[in-house]
């Protein structure tokens, strides 16, 4: 061990359980995922079990990892356990599974919640979310990706969360024009807004956001592929908003009804750069990069990439596309 010194016999038998709890608890163990803590960490010894019962460990709950071997029902139980243990101290939760019922449970028990992040789960609905946010008066950050929500519901959320300062909406083929209108109408206190994958092609909507959300400090619309801001408007955005992210001529990686050709490799890079993500890893030297062959590098990005890969018209028709 690097820290073991010959002149200091005590370090050889150093008892790490004597570490100050503020380090071992909140700073280290609290950073692990909820499943890991409940399934593993708390079983290490009595002392850690006690630490794991401290509500301070559960101010932030991340259910985004530790999926192995657990079905959605079990995960929901784990999540409710974690919420129970926070004893109402929960301020930040990330869920990528679950139902409106779970959301209801979280919101009932967690009045102090300031950040709610729901990803990759169409089982959450705008209606359920609306019920939940009514009970969360301190909610400041809301991140939604790939959940079932319609534009009216976004507007209701805005009205129910007057403190909302940061909003992220990620979903391909949404009618971004209508969403932008709802956001501009209902979220006047926003400081940070990020829209990924929206089909927003009208400059007027960006103007609406500018006037509806006068306090914006950051606006990220790199993921809005079909937007072609006119020069004056882009200049205005850059003047008004400290951190303005916009990219012209983003082409999604795979042909759909909005683009008539496949993207080139460099355009695919641009795409992922455009939405602020790393390109999924796959073997560049492997010429055989058909849809199903991405080597072993299967990770979240891979699934993201899969979702972006709406390759055939038939698949595409499954999505509801509103026309502006």
């Amino acid at each position: 061990m690097a820290s073991t010194s010959a002149g200091d016999p005590s370090s050889e038998s150093r008892n790490w359980l004597e570490m100050p709890e503020e380090i071992m608890g909140g700073m280290i163990l609290g950073r692990l995922g909820a499943v890991e803590i409940l399934d593993s960490v708390q079983k290490v010894c009595r002392n850690w079990r006690r630490i794991c019962k401290d509500p301070a460990m559960w101010k932030v709950i991340d259910m985004n990892n530790g999926f192995d071997g657990l079905n959605p029902d079990d995960l929901e139980k784990v999540c409710k356990q974690a919420v129970d243990r926070s004893c109402g101290e929960l301020i930040d939760i990330t869920l990528n599974f679950g139902t409106d019922d779970l959301l209801d449970y979280v919101s009932l028990c967690s009045r102090k919640l300031t950040r709610l992040c729901l990803t990759d789960c169409y089982a959450f609905t705008g209606c359920g979310l609306n019920y939940a946010v009514k009970r969360l008066p301190h909610l400041e950050t809301l991140e939604l990706s790939y959940i079932s929500i319609d534009t009216e519901e976004i507007e209701v959320i805005g009205h129910n969360c007057p403190q909302l300062k940061s909003f992220t909406m990620e979903n391909e083929f949404r009618d971004g024009d209508v969403d932008a209108h709802a956001i501009a109408n209902s979220m006047p206190a926003l400081r940070h807004l990020k829209l990924v994958g929206s089909i927003m092609d009208s400059d007027d909507r960006v103007r609406a956001i500018l006037s509806g959300c006068p306090h914006l400090q950051s606006l990220d619309i790199r993921g809005c592929f079909y937007l072609h801001l006119d020069g004056n408007l882009e200049k205005l955005c850059r003047e008004r908003i400290k951190d303005f992210k916009f990219k012209r001529n983003n082409i999604p990686p795979v042909r759909n009804e909005y683009s008539d050709r496949d993207a080139t490799p460099s355009e695919i890079d641009d795409f992922f750069d455009g939405i602020g993500m790393d390109r999924p890893e796959y073997d560049d030297e492997d010429d055989d990069d058909d849809d199903n062959d991405y080597g072993n590098g299967i990770d979240d990005d891979y699934w993201y990439f899969q979702r972006c890969t709406i390759s055939g018209k038939d698949d595409f028709d499954d999505y509801t596309v509103y026309s502006p």
């Binding site: 038998s13 150093r14 008892n15 790490w16 359980l17 593993s40 960490v41 079983k43 290490v44 010894c45 009595r46 002392n47 850690w48 079990r49």
Partner: peptide
């Protein structure tokens, strides 16, 4: 579990 105990020299006292 065992690796954590080993790395931190914690005994299972349950």
């Amino acid at each position: 579990l065992e690796e954590v105990r080993e790395a931190l020299r914690i005994e299972n006292d349950r």
